[in-house]
Amino acid sequence: MDEERRERIAALDEERLEQIAALPKTELHLHFEGAAPPGFIRGLAKEKHVDLSGIFNRDGSYAYRDFVHFLSVYEAATSVLKTPDDYARLTTAVLEECAKNGVIYAETFLSPDFCGGGDVPAWREYLHAIREAADAAERDMGITLRGVVTCIRHFGPDKAKRAALCAAETAGDWLCGFGMAGDENRGEQKDFAYSFDMAREAGLGLTSHACEWRGASEARNAIRDLGVSRIGHGVRAIADPATVEMIAEEGITLEVCPGSNVFLGVFPSLKDHPIERLRKAGVKVTVSTDDPPFFHTTMRKEYTDLAKTFGWDEADFLEINRNAMHAAFCDDATRDAILKRLEPET
C-alpha cells in the first residue's frame, strides 16, 4: 500500500466515514430472496402458519453452518414466498433496504424455479408483480431495479433450460440478463451452454458465478464455454496470473462481494481479499453485497470497510461505480441517467 493511502486511512474519522458511506452506489450482484430481511420472512411465515424457527438464531438473524447449509436455509426461507403478491411485497422490502444504503441502481438475480416453478405463464405473473413494485420504488425512493434471471447450478442443466426459456420469453428493457448461481462444486460451466445460448439469442447479457469456491479454471470456463461478459465473484482467479491477465484483456467485469467472501471464509480477512490487487492488475471490479442479511453486511458497510482497509476515497468508488454501469445489462438511456447521478456535484 502506498504512503498516500496509508495517510487516508489514518485520517479517517466518523465524519469522513459517513461521507464515504453516503456516496451514491450501484450493485450488480444481489440475490433477490437472499436480500430478504429476516423480519420480513418471519412475518410472512407467521401469516402462513409455517414454522421456520429452525433457520433463525436467537437474535432473529439467519442461522447456518457453512455454504452448503446456507443454500438449504436460503431455500427454506424462500419456501414461504408462494404468490406474486408475496414477491411484490419482497420487492418493496428489499428496495427499501437498498435505498437506505444509498443504492441508486441495482440488478437482482431472479430464479423462475422459485417464482412459478419454471412455468412461463406463472413466471410472467410473478415478473409482472415484481416489476410493478419496482416501478413504484423507483418513483417513490429513486432507486432503479433491473432483473437478471438465474438458473440454479445444483438443480441441473434441464431445469436451467426451463429458466432460460422463461428469460427468453420475457427479455426486454426490464428483464435484461441471464446468469447462473448455486453450488459451484456441482457440474461444469459447459453443462449449461445450451441455456446460455438461448439467453444470448434473446439479447440478454450474460454472467455466471465462478471462482468463489473453485479455482481459476472456473473463470476461464465461464468465459470460454458460456460467453459471459461478467463473472459473479471471480476472486480466486488471483491465484493464477494468466487468468487475471485474460480477464483484464477481455474486459470481463467481476461482481465482487468482499463482505460475503470474508464472512464465508473464502478469505480470512478483508486485508487478505484480492479486490485491490485485481484492480491494480487492470481488472474491472465492482462491489456488491451478495445476500446481505445472511452475511451481516450492507452497501454502506462495504464502502466504509473498503475505505478503512485499502484507503479508498470518492475517486476510487466513482471508478467502481462507473465499472458497474458500463457492465450493467440495462438499456443505454438508463445507463446514461445513472452515470449522471453518480458524478460528484460541482
Score class of each variant (00 low, 15 high):
270 L>M: 12
23 L>I: 02
259 G>K: 06
281 A>I: 13
66 D>G: 01
229 S>P: 10
316 D>A: 00
124 R>V: 09
86 D>S: 04
185 N>P: 10
134 A>K: 08
105 Y>F: 12
286 T>Y: 11
222 A>S: 11
262 V>T: 05
230 R>W: 07
159 K>Q: 15
127 L>W: 08
192 F>L: 01
118 G>V: 02
46 K>P: 08
21 A>D: 03
184 E>C: 03
23 L>D: 01
122 A>H: 09
241 P>K: 05
346 T>N: 14
107 E>W: 04
304 T>L: 07
214 R>T: 14
142 G>A: 04
33 E>N: 11
242 A>Y: 11
9 I>W: 10
135 D>L: 15
289 T>D: 06
107 E>Y: 05
276 E>Y: 12
162 R>S: 13
46 K>D: 10
101 N>E: 11
315 A>Q: 14
338 I>R: 04
290 D>H: 08
150 T>M: 14
92 T>I: 08
97 E>H: 10
285 V>W: 07
233 H>L: 02
173 D>L: 13
9 I>S: 08
90 L>M: 06
20 I>G: 03
137 A>W: 01
182 G>M: 03
142 G>L: 12
146 R>C: 01
326 H>R: 13
345 E>A: 07
217 S>N: 06
214 R>D: 14
109 F>E: 14
341 R>H: 01
6 R>S: 09
25 K>W: 03
17 L>G: 02
222 A>R: 09
278 L>G: 01
212 E>N: 06
332 D>K: 14
130 I>Q: 15
162 R>Y: 13
91 T>V: 03
146 R>E: 03
155 F>E: 09
216 A>P: 07
240 D>A: 08
116 G>C: 09
94 V>A: 07
129 A>V: 07
108 T>K: 14
66 D>K: 05
168 A>W: 02
132 E>F: 05
161 K>F: 00
22 A>Q: 13
41 I>A: 00
216 A>K: 02
21 A>V: 03
210 A>V: 03
336 D>N: 13
70 F>C: 01
95 L>A: 12
2 D>F: 09
319 E>H: 10
160 A>E: 06
326 H>E: 10
111 S>H: 06
189 Q>V: 06
171 A>G: 04
143 I>C: 07
70 F>M: 07
258 P>H: 08
332 D>E: 15
29 H>M: 04
317 F>E: 00
98 C>M: 15
84 P>C: 04
328 A>H: 05
72 S>A: 11
278 L>A: 06
285 V>S: 03
81 L>A: 03
175 L>V: 10
93 A>F: 05
142 G>M: 08
308 K>I: 04
243 T>V: 11
261 N>M: 07
71 L>V: 07
54 G>V: 01
131 R>E: 13
209 H>D: 01
226 L>T: 00
126 Y>T: 01
135 D>H: 14
142 G>F: 05
108 T>M: 15
235 V>Q: 12
310 F>Y: 11
87 Y>C: 00
130 I>H: 13
299 M>I: 05
111 S>G: 06
42 R>L: 11
304 T>K: 04
63 A>N: 09
234 G>R: 10
141 M>L: 15
317 F>L: 03
320 I>M: 03
242 A>G: 07
199 A>N: 05
64 Y>S: 02
294 F>S: 08
275 I>K: 10
13 D>F: 06
166 C>P: 00
10 A>P: 13
